[in-house]
Design a protein around this nucleic acid. Structure first.
Length: 700
RNA sequence: CGCGAGAUAGAGCAGCGGUAGCUCGUCGGGCUCAUAACCCGAAGGUCACAGGUUCGAUCCCUGUUCUCGCUACCA
């Protein structure tokens, strides 16, 4: 099919925290490369994205921070938007789902499906937290697991035994948000009958996309479809989100995964009055760039919604990437184990392209990959600047030394095989990069660009114009060789700028300035040409395209990662907030509400002595402690491994909350909690008796 | 548990029926125009493990192990 226009979307980032480089590598960078390539070909393309600003986690965060959900999303929308702009992600529009246009669009979408009788209405009893006045999502209900007896199983799953649960199965369910007892209330929701679309999805994906979609995407879709689809509730009880546009539906909003993908449509509407061309005409190619965790929503649920609504194009491809790990460990926003884009932009001003280079060269296209700062340094210094940057510099320096600062003549009549081979390489590079980009093989595409520079270096080495210049007796003849060689090197350089432009746009622009050509030279159709620079045209003096990444910079970033991790751990143990990111170390934790003596008396504080301490496997933060409590020994798991070595704390006397409900952590039951003071710098100090007390004695 | 994806030289990745390839790193050499760079050469792999199909398997099939996702935060 010949497509007349392209609509490219990148996953809507959730406005509950900043974006990190894993987001970038996963979908925003590949999408941007693809879009820049299409634009360079003058194809009709729109690139849309925006913040996803609804959903329960945002309301929880707002509750914890004592601000409104709108405050939360305003804050992160700005940070995220600025991060993308800073990295040159060239959205045509970066919208947000809290905009009116989005509310209108998603409500209209819902209404259409409702009027067409698509939804099934179902009433059910759900748990309600009377203190917080909210219905609780499954994840926010905890109780005892009916399978293994873990007392802290979640309403959707028990982390200890892995059983998939529903809140109804939990024994003694309670709210994770407050101490209020749970009550059940009747509530009505609208379900989208995914099951009815199963035959259609089978045909469209299982048969239609078998060899087109990436194995990870296809495999997951097939598994979902084969295992039978269930109706899914498309509404939720909440006051934060797009209100359900039906009478009697007060206090109900659209499920985020219903409204978020519609955000692509609203953003397009906001961008252009021609939006319907991009969404409804069959000759539009719709491509969703996402991360692997989003596959079913973009490949199954959203297309089924579009199909049910009718009149929309369906995604032609969904090139989902895998995940990027950091220094061998999974990205975790709650542990603050991530490289944040907003911080990178500050720490490495004007170094967008080197990060773009590394993230693309090491993109997790087929499996999870690892980002390390050492690898970042190696790739920038030894590949990008050594091969490409250095070639560009050599060409410029030699041209200024041997050709008076002007583009020398080609002398086409006396070209040799090496020259012709290089011209062939230049033309081939265009074809290769095109093939890669059309097929979403961005890593390979970038390799081809660097490889062309590598061929340039080889060509220079073989011709050694600097040697030719040293034999004055053969001046005329040699000068011709020098001219041809440098002429071709400079044309190759112009080609590099064009091919590099989708990947490293900042660098491509810099190269244009040095060659004193207009940006229009970067049009894709110019790739493969060897007449981009006119003979005798003066170029600017040499100037390095890239600087090396110093060891000290790498060390500083490593240090930062580790420090952030500690701070986050410290913050977590305050147990008041659980910020994804600590802006500044909290001076003093917020004061808690006043309690009565009776409240206090409920706490059984006792003195104990640490008998044994050992690291808990597969947990950075946890120590398993065995305590002598006088009349008994008990096991307490404590999150202090980042602060103390096990051997250093054996024999210490500590104060223990002895009647805290047991809790399993990493499979070990913890019976109590050690009291700790925490400094502003996050450091922990044992709150222990000043003199040795009897083990088991009560603290009042 | 189940389902999906992955496991290939020190690191990062290709290959997916016919004697294992690329980039980086390492070692040796060359060159000196260049960002101690570039060019040439070498070493380095029982292609996770165990079975099977085949004349022949890294590639296909079966089983096992490990990693990640589906499953909080999250792409």
């Amino acid at each position: 099919m010949d497509f007349k226009r392209y609509l490219i979307t990148a996953a809507l980032p959730y406005a509950n925290g900043p974006v990190h480089i894993g987001h970038l590598a996963g979908c925003y960078l590949p999408a941007d490369i693809y879009v820049r390539y299409l634009r360079a070909q003058k194809r009709d393309v729109k690139f849309v994205c925006g913040s996803d600003e609804h959903g329960v986690p945002i309301t929880i965060r707002a509750m914890k921070e004592g601000i409104t959900p709108q405050d939360v999303v305003d804050k992160y929308n700005k940070i995220i938007k600025d991060s993308f702009a800073g990295m040159g992600i060239s959205f045509d529009i970066y919208s947000r789902t809290s905009n009116k246009i989005h509310h209108d669009t998603s409500q209209a979408f819902f209404t259409k499906l409702y009027n067409d009788g698509v939804f099934e209405e179902r009433e059910s009893e759900q748990y309600y937290d009377e203190q917080k006045n909210v219905f609780l999502a499954d994840r926010y209900i905890v109780g005892t697991c009916p399978v293994c007896g873990n007392e802290n199983a979640y309403g959707d799953q028990c982390e200890k035994c892995g059983s998939t649960l529903s809140p109804e199965q939990l024994i003694n369910p309670r709210s994770a948000l407050s101490s209020a007892p749970l009550v059940k209330r009747m509530t009505k929701h609208w379900y989208f009958p995914l099951d009815k679309y199963e035959p259609w999805l089978k045909e469209w994906i299982v048969e239609g996309k078998k060899d087109q979609w990436k194995p990870n995407v296809y495999g997951q879709c097939k598994s979902w479809i084969d295992s039978g689809l269930q109706p899914r509730a498309m509404t939720r009880d909440s006051n934060w989100g797009v209100p359900v546009p039906l009478p009697g539906a007060e206090g109900k909003v659209l499920y985020v995964w219903f409204d978020a993908p519609i955000g692509y449509i609203s953003a397009t509407k906001e961008l252009t009055s021609q939006w319907a061309d991009y969404w409804c005409k069959e000759d539009t190619k719709l491509v969703h760039f996402i991360g692997k965790d989003n596959i079913v929503f973009h490949c199954i649920i959203f297309p089924a919604m579009l199909k049910a609504h009718g009149g929309f194009v369906l995604p032609e491809s969904v090139p989902a990437n895998e995940f990027l790990n950091i220094e061998g460990e999974k990205v975790s926003t709650s542990r603050n184990w991530a490289v944040w884009v907003d911080e990178y932009v500050k720490d490495f001003p004007d170094q967008q392209d080197v990060l773009r280079y590394v993230l693309c060269a090491n993109a997790p296209e087929t499996k999870d990959n690892d980002f390390t700062w050492k690898d970042f340094q190696d790739r920038v210094n030894n590949e990008l600047s050594a091969v490409l940057g250095n070639f560009e510099n050599r060409a410029f320096v030699l041209m200024h030394k041997l050709c008076k600062g002007r583009v020398p003549a080609l002398h086409a009549a006396v070209m040799n095989d090496m020259d012709r081979a290089l011209i062939g390489d230049i033309k081939n590079a265009k074809t290769k990069v095109e093939y890669c980009l059309e097929n979403y093989k961005f890593r390979d595409g970038l390799y081809e660009v660097i490889d062309l520079a590598r061929k340039g270096n080889k060509y220079l080495q073989e011709n050694a114009p600097w040697s030719l210049a040293k034999t004055p007796e053969l001046q005329t003849e040699n000068q011709q060789r020098i001219d041809i060689c440098l002429h071709l090197c400079l044309q190759l350089n112009a080609n590099l700028a064009i091919l590099l432009n989708p990947f490293l746009p900042f660098t491509a622009n810099k190269m244009c300035k040095k060659m004193k050509v207009v940006e229009r030279m970067l049009d894709w159709e110019n790739a493969g040409r060897i007449d981009l620079l006119k003979t005798n045209y003066p170029l600017l003096p040499p100037e390095l395209l890239f600087r090396k990444i110093e060891d000290t910079e790498v060390a500083a970033q490593m240090e930062k990662l580790k420090n952030n991790l500690v701070k986050s751990t410290a913050a977590k143990m305050e147990n008041t907030t659980e910020p994804a990111k600590i802006e500044a170390a909290p001076e003093t934790p917020a004061k808690k509400a006043e309690i009565t003596y009776d409240d206090f008396a409920k706490i059984d504080l006792r003195v104990g002595t640490i008998l044994k301490a050992e690291k808990v496997e597969k947990a950075d933060k946890l120590l398993k402690l065995e305590l002598d409590m006088g009349t008994e020994t008990r096991i307490v798991v404590s999150g202090i491994a980042m602060h103390f070595k096990p051997e250093d704390i054996i024999g210490k006397q500590v104060t223990v909350v002895a009647n805290l409900a047991p809790r399993k952590m990493r499979g070990i039951e913890s019976n109590g909690m050690i009291l700790m003071a925490q400094n502003a710098d996050g450091r922990l100090i044992f709150a222990s008796p000043l003199e040795t007390a009897d083990n088991g004695s009560e603290v009042k």
